[in-house]
Amino acid sequence: MIPPDATLYEILTGPVLWGTFIIFGVGVVLRVLLYVKGLDWKIDRVTYGVNTSYGVKGAIKSVFSWLIPFGTRNWRANPVMTTAVFVFHFGLLFTPVFLLAHNMMLTERWGFSLWTISESFADYLTIAVLISAVYMVLRRIALPEVRIITTFYDYLILLIAVAPFVTGFMARYQFSDYQFWLLAHIISGEIMLIAIPFTKLSHFVLFFCSRAQLGMDFGIKRGGMKGNKQLTW
């Protein structure tokens, strides 16, 4: 199905998409490299380069404990938020990659596709992402300890992250102007990818960096070398 407005569509899914992928890819790699380059054993007071095996153990435990739903004390202490966070992130990462429509494009362009999920499952994931997002917004407004640190930027980031889902959903169900929603979907998806290296969405990779760093800190300096004891997060 080729939209009548073919040129814009072609540009957006052609050169602009390529540019987006490059900015995103180079951007996240740079963020990681710059992070690592900025680590300083003297200032951070962690001997990253010595006693490294302890650090690696600590880093792995730190990252994985937090990647597992309810894997840490604080995840368990906040069951609703934890569910929302995991559903949100799972949906955000999983849906676009394995979406049938996206993979059809892959086949069309390059003749291959990944394993795909059913369209109805994608719908459920989309709805779950949107519900989680609404919950997170309400939580920001309702809880004083969250409200006080919330800024406009936090809402903007959330908007950037969910916009591709809202627009994609609208396009799929063709509630109104399909062309409009399709283009909005592509643009919002590209905005999200470009925003990752430049905004707080950089936690896409910096989460792993920061978690690994603190894991190394505990693994090397703060007790990890005492009888090879690992901190329980």
């Binding site: 710059l34 992070y35 690592v36 380059k37 900025g38 680590l39 300083d40 200032i43 951070d44 604080n74 202490a77 906040n78 938020m81 920001r140 809880l143 300890e145 969250v146 640190i149 919330t150 800024t151 936090d154 980031i157 707080k200 950089s202 936690h203 910096l206 989460f207 960096c209 920061s210 760093q213």
Partner: peptide, 26 residues
Amino acid sequence: TCKSRIRTWLEICNHCGLCADSCFFY
């Protein structure tokens, strides 16, 4: 002295408030 470790911490804090209950002052 403010290098990537602390700068990143300051930047990526997503203002979720999940640290509130951990502090005895809070």
